[in-house]
Amino acid sequence: MNKARFLVVFFFGMLMVLVVLPEFMHQDPLMVNLKQKLQPPSVDHLLGTDGLGRDLMSRLVYGGRNTVGTSLVILILSLGVGIPVGIFAGYAGGVIDRIFMRVSDSFLAFPDYITAIVLTGLLGPGVINLMIAIVAVKWIAYARLVRASLMAEKDKDYIHSARLSGVPSVHLVVKHLMPAALSQLIVVATLDIGKIILMIAALSYIGLGLQPPTPEWGAMLNEGRAYFHNAPLAMVIPGVAIMVFVLLSNLMGDELQDGLQRGQKGEQNHDHS
C-alpha cells in the first residue's frame, strides 16, 4: 500500500508541477523566431528551440498542461457518462440493460483508435471534438464495469436484507453497491490516464487533435520529426515526457490493483466459520 500511496502522491505532485510551472516560464511558447531555430540548450533556452525557433522548455511545460490536462478532463467526462449508465443498466436491468448491451457491443466491435479517428475526422479538428471523440470511446468500458459489479452484488443476501430493512434504492446503490464497483473503477481509470494521453498524442500527431500553434506533446512529436537528424531534442523531449506520464499512470494502476487484491484476500483469510 505504501508503494501505491507514494506513486499517487508523486503523480499529483507532477500534476501540480505542470500546473504551476508555466508561471515560471520566461519564454513565450508561441513566439516564432526563425533566426533562433533549432538551437541547442542554452541559458536562454534551457532545452533549446524547435524548428520555428520557439522555446522548447516552455512548449514542454505548456504542452504538459494541455496534454495531461485534457486527458484528465476526458477521463472525468467519460466517468461522468459511464457510471450513471452502468448503474441504470446494472441495477434496473431489463430493457435499459438490453439496449445498453447492444449499443456497447456495436461500439466495442471496432478498435478504439479507429473509432476515435473516424469521429474526429467527421467532427473536424479541435480540442472539443477531440474530447467528444475519445469520451465516446472510453465511457463504455466504465459503464460495463459498473454494470457487471452491480449485477454481481445485487443478488447477494446482504442486499436482500437491506431491502427488507426498508433501505431505499438510491441509498442501496450509493452505499452498498457502488463501493465495490468504485475500487475496481479506480484501478481501470488510473491505467487509462496513460492510454488517453497516448490517444491524444496519436490524434494530434496526425493532425486531428489540438491544432497548431497550441503546444501538445503528440503534435510536438510530429513537428520535431522533420528535424530529427539535426536537432533530435525537439522530438525526444516530448517523447520522453509522454513516456514518463504513461509509465507513471501504469505503475500507479498496477500498485492500486495489487493493493486492492491483497486487501480482498486478507478479508477472505481471516474468515473462520
Binding site: 443476501d157 436482500h160 436484507s161 431491502r163 427488507l164 430493512s165 426498508g166
Partner: peptide, 8 residues
C-alpha cells in the same frame, strides 16, 4: 419492510 425479516 420491518414486518418480515430474514436470516440466511
Amino acid at each position: 419492510k420491518g414486518s418480515v425479516q430474514a436470516v440466511f
